[in-house]
């Protein structure tokens, strides 16, 4: 029964067998020593763990810091050896060049328009569709949902050519062609707002709201649209925020579709624009660093404020719960 008295089973493992000594005080001393050894061991392990973790953190955020120095110096000075970490003649020339001789501002504005509109469009269409799938009974509902869900993972690349052709074809049509075409905002946005992930997410989320609320609202005379706007939307705000962040992050980071759909500099977005700064053969490192840094900083600041939401949003994409 002595075993039960000891609360820490870990200590027990290290303890000598009870018959080793009859002397109770010696026994206690040995137990204490074993405990100390164990604790010491624990501490080394902990330190090691934090060292490893910190190492990975350095790797994770290091590359961004490695941009700082080149961004504020003359590109030629990068190539001196031994390397000069802190530029002796810091300069804003790279930024001056970025704003005066490239379309950086235009790209940034385009990115905001592109990602912002795609997010709003996705939120609106997906929430409505999610509501229909969650709450409305209509024949063929499950089949339609299944067909839509099947396209969840369709890669942009797999439908790149036909999507390009679709947008191009619509562009040849009268009137609507002025709005939807290659090198138009809508031509860029609409094919980016097709993913059914949000439909799926919203359906899941709206289904968790108690049935009683809809039923009460219907008996209170509210039609579907009023229920949707006055009851459902206010109650799914958190899900809207999560989906919104997710779509925005995904859209502004996207590259392949903007690369082919917005070739005209007037409609080019940041990802394509910055990539174009890296020349085919010769690269102006300073400008590249400056542009990259300038693009990352605001996102990082926003992220630090809303990190909880960001993490949820990224998980929502994978776990869908």
């Amino acid at each position: 029964m002595a075993r039960d008295v000891t609360t820490d089973p870990a200590t027990l493992e290290e303890a000598p067998p009870p018959e080793a000594t009859d002397d109770a005080t010696a026994m206690a001393a040995r137990l204490a020593e074993a405990g100390r050894a164990k604790r010491l061991n624990e501490r080394t392990r902990m330190i090691l763990a934090y060292v490893v973790l910190t190492l990975f953190v350095v790797i994770a955020i290091g590359p961004a810091f490695y941009l700082i120095s080149p961004a504020f110096r003359d590109s030629v000075s990068l190539f001196t050896y031994p390397p000069e970490w802190i530029p002796s003649e810091p300069t804003l020339d790279n930024y001056r060049f970025l704003f005066s001789s490239t379309s950086y501002v235009r790209w940034a504005i385009n990115t905001l328009i592109f990602a912002g509109s795609t997010t709003l469009l996705t939120l609106a269409t997906n929430t409505m569709a999610g509501y229909a799938f969650a709450r409305l009974r209509f024949p063929g509902r499950n089949l339609l949902f299944f067909v839509i869900l099947a396209t969840l993972m369709v890669p942009v690349a797999a439908v790149l050519a036909p999507t390009y052709l679709t947008v191009n074809t619509i562009g040849d049509w009268p009137i609507i062609g002025n709005w939807i075409d290659i090198d138009t905002y809508l031509g860029l946005i609409l094919p980016s707002a097709v993913s059914p992930l949000g439909v799926f997410m919203m359906r899941q989320f709206i289904e968790t709201l108690p049935d009683g609320l809809y039923e009460a609202a219907r008996l209170d005379g509210a039609g579907e649209w009023r229920i949707f706007t006055k009851i459902v939307l206010p109650l799914i705000k958190p899900a809207l925020v999560v989906l919104g962040i997710f779509v925005f992050m995904l859209t502004w980071a996207s590259y392949l579709w903007p690369l082919v759909a917005a070739t005209d500099n007037e409609f080019r977005v940041l990802t394509v624009g910055i990539a174009s700064l890296k020349g085919q053969f010769v690269t102006d490192w300073g400008i590249l660093a400056a542009a990259s840094l300038l693009t990352i900083v605001p996102v990082t600041i926003v992220f630090l404020f809303f990190q909880k939401w960001f993490v949820q949003a990224s998980m929502a994409g994978a776990l869908k719960q």
Binding site: G212, A216, I231
Partner: peptide, 9 residues
């Protein structure tokens, strides 16, 4: 309703 179904917001 049994659970009253008040609009929580």
């Amino acid at each position: 309703f049994q659970n009253y179904a008040l609009y929580p917001h």
